[in-house]
Amino acid sequence: MNLEYFFSLFLGGLTRGSIYALIALGYTMVYGIIKLINFAHGEIYMIGAFTSLIIGAALAMSGMNPILIFVLACLAAIVYSAAYGITIERLAYRPLRKAPRLSVLISAIGMSIFLQNYVLLAQTSDFLPFPLVLPNMKFLKPIEHMMTTTQFLILISTAVVMVLLTILIKFTRMGKAMRATSQDKDMAQLVGINVDRVISMTFLIGSATAALGGVLISSHIGQINFYIGFIAGIKAFVAAVLGGIGSIPGAVLGSFVLGLTESFGTGYISSDYEDAFAFIILILILIFKPAGLLGRKENEKV
């Protein structure tokens, strides 16, 4: 067995897993709070990537320092994705808060179709090369053939986001309000929590992390189009379900499991079925352990 090949697959899996984690967080947080699979979440990620591409390309024409451009484009992506997240919740989900779950789900699918076509029509259907490329860092030289600077950056930023998010949820007022809202929305309202604000905040945070994922993976892969959100979104969702939807550590764990499975699966089995691995894992997990790896079983009250 070729150890070096194994390691490069392993690192590739970790990178994938980190990106899935950044997107899966949004799914899992939103599901935890309003029990909705936000089908439009993948599109938020795509809009993040597109915004950074547009802003980045525009800034690049002014001949700015590439690292500064990267930071600015990243910020723009985060701000815009968060804004889209909040707006979507306001327009498409909030009016349906008392409606049957099927209605909200359909509304989410509608939003996803709309956003894809919005970007397709306003921009282009072609793949565009992603302009934000980071110069290679010196200290990564010895392992460059296995891990690029972008990969390194992806791993670091995912770790940082996870730590920040854990602090936010465990130790801040907002985090406490979020946990209360996810337990019982009506009760939370009664004890004076502004539930609407908590839900908006959840969409904001989930969208912002997805945008970060969008920028990082795009600069890793090097090109984007309007359709990238769909597959990435579904896979991140699979990761969230795998870990136990509604659970934040679960989403992270699920993402790494999925990322590694895909990486080793394509490396050792076949790359034709790259996308099928995620779906097969999804079906298996739902049959054998529907609550996911770290999820709690929900019993319906009769």
């Binding site: 909705l36 779950r101 699979v238 379900v241 034709d272 099928a276 779906f279 079906i283 739902l286 529907p290």
Partner: peptide, 27 residues
């Protein structure tokens, strides 16, 4: 396989099923 699944899980599994069928036909 989906007998036990509730609404939103069902949606995503049927979607996955559709994609698997397409991937098999393609490959």
């Amino acid at each position: 396989p989906i007998l036990r699944l509730r609404g939103d899980y069902l949606a995503i599994v049927t979607l996955a099923f559709g994609e698997i069928v397409r991937l098999v036909l393609e490959n």
